[in-house]
Design a protein around this nucleic acid. Structure first.
Lengths: 144, 144
DNA sequence: CAGCGGTAAGTTGTGTGCAATCTAATTGTG
DNA sequence: CACAATTAGATTGCACACAACTTACCGCTG
């Protein structure tokens, strides 16, 4: 009969806590824009390049249509995006930014600084953390 | 008019992705025990020391009663814990393990190894990652 | 001892995540 | 061309997270 692992030794719990803490820091800032954190992620992707199909958004964010469909519907009802059925392939839905959605980009530009300021880590440490996390995520996806 | 930040530069997104990927690796293993990841976290805390009040559980995991109350109700209906109103202080609810809940501990002992194996990082890297994440979480909580 | 402030837990409502299923459209194959 | 397999997206159901609110209870103070 082996021992149960201690909570405070687990990387997984550290990830879970840090992720929720980071989202909590973003929340009040994003509230000013009327966005939740996942909605903000979708907007970030669209600000880089649009229009995008639902599947493409899902691949970049690691989310499926079960999450994205209602999320996009909310973004549309808030007037930040528009969904248009593709003419060539009627299955596809192209997600476009509206002018309101595009102009939100400038208001959002200062947001990542909030995390950096609150993080209590140096720029190098943050950069190294990001790299490690990306390697970890890739490896976990391969294992899954 | 400043630029929108790039998604792939953001530590916050790296955290969010890594955390979900880690949970995804745990999911099939925990499914064998009949637990979700947050339920497993609660069990981990109780395996260390029980009984515990709802508030204490919440402090250790960073969750509030809005999350814990229904989660504990599910753990109770599965027969892993028992909730008893305290006699001295009728506001408090003590969460006890049942024999079934206690015996689950041995089946769960191999679980953290799954993440370590799938992580593709050395033990030292994992240890350093955990330490960095804990520092980050602390700092973010102070900022929030 | 009356009642007021504070605390513990539960409830409600909204928004994810994710598995499973469904519908409609397209593509590949004989 | 018929038609099975595949694909894009939406829907359903369940379990978190979290804010806001409610209820019940405790402890303190006048």
């Amino acid at each position: 009969m082996t021992e149960a692992p201690r909570l405070d030794r687990q990387v997984c719990f550290a990830l879970y806590s840090a992720s929720r803490a980071a989202t909590a820091v973003y929340r009040p800032v994003l509230e000013d824009l009327g966005l939740t954190y996942p909605q903000y992620l979708v907007m970030l992707v669209l600000w880089e390049s649009e229009p995008k199909g639902v599947r493409e958004l899902g691949e970049e964010l690691g989310l499926d249509s079960g999450t994205l469909s209602p999320l996009l519907k909310r973004l549309e009802s808030m007037g930040f995006v528009e969904r248009r059925r593709s003419g060539e392939d009627e299955r596809r839905v192209a997600v476009h930014l509206t002018p309101a959605g595009r102009s939100l980009s400038s208001k959002a530009s200062g947001i990542p600084r909030h995390l950096a300021d609150a993080a209590g880590l140096s720029a190098e440490e943050l950069e190294q953390l990001r790299t490690t996390l990306e390697r970890l995520t890739q490896a976990l996806h391969r294992a899954h």
